[in-house]
Computed example of a mutant assay.
Amino acid sequence: MYKPGNVSTAPAVVAPHQPRLDWQMWFAALAHHSSSPWFTSFVYRLLQGKKDVIRLVQVDESQYPFSAQPPVYIRAQLYKYWFTGSAEGSEGPAPWWRRQRVQEFFPAVSLGDPTLESLLNQHGLKDKTSLKRSADAFLPRLLQSLRRLSRPFSGPAVLWSLYLVAATVCLLRALGRRPGGARPPPATKAPGGGSPRTGGAARRTGRCGGRRPRRRRRKARAGPGGRPMATPMAGPGGRLMATPMASAAPRRRSSAWSRRLRPRLPPTD
Score class of each variant (00 low, 15 high):
Tyr2Ala: 09
Lys3Arg: 10
Val7Tyr: 01
Pro11Glu: 06
Ala15Gly: 01
Ala15Thr: 02
Pro16Arg: 15
Pro16Glu: 07
Pro19Lys: 00
Gln24Thr: 00
Trp26Met: 13
Phe27Ser: 07
Ala28Trp: 02
Ala29Leu: 12
Ala29Tyr: 08
Leu30Ala: 15
His32Pro: 12
His32Leu: 14
His32Gly: 14
Phe39Lys: 02
Thr40Cys: 08
Ser41Ile: 00
Val43Trp: 01
Val43Asn: 01
Tyr44Asp: 15
Arg45Trp: 00
Leu47Thr: 01
Ile54Leu: 12
Arg55Glu: 08
Leu56Ile: 01
Phe66Ile: 00
Ile74Cys: 06
Ala76Ile: 15
Tyr79His: 14
Tyr81Asp: 09
Gly85Asn: 14
Glu88Met: 14
Glu88Asn: 12
Ser90Ala: 15
Pro93Glu: 03
Ala94Asp: 10
Arg99Pro: 12
Glu104Ile: 11
Phe105Met: 11
Val109Ala: 10
Leu111Glu: 10
Gly112Phe: 00
Leu116His: 05
Leu120Thr: 03
His123Asn: 12
Lys128Cys: 09
Thr129Pro: 04
Leu131Met: 07
Arg133Pro: 02
Phe138Glu: 15
Pro140Cys: 08
Leu146Lys: 06
Leu146Ile: 10
Phe153Gln: 13
Val165Ser: 15
Val165Gln: 13
Arg173Lys: 15
Leu175Ile: 08
Pro179Ala: 00
Gly181Tyr: 04
Pro184Phe: 06
Pro185Glu: 07
Ser195Pro: 07
Arg197Tyr: 03
Gly199Asn: 03
Ala201Met: 14
Arg204Lys: 15
Thr205His: 14
Arg207Ser: 01
Gly209Asn: 03
Arg212Val: 13
Arg212His: 06
Ala220Asp: 08
Ala222Pro: 09
Gly225Phe: 01
Met233Thr: 11
Ala234His: 09
Gly238Cys: 13
Gly238Ala: 12
Arg239Gly: 02
Ala246Ser: 10
Arg252Ile: 04
Ser255Leu: 11
Ala256Tyr: 02
Arg260Tyr: 10
Pro267Ile: 06
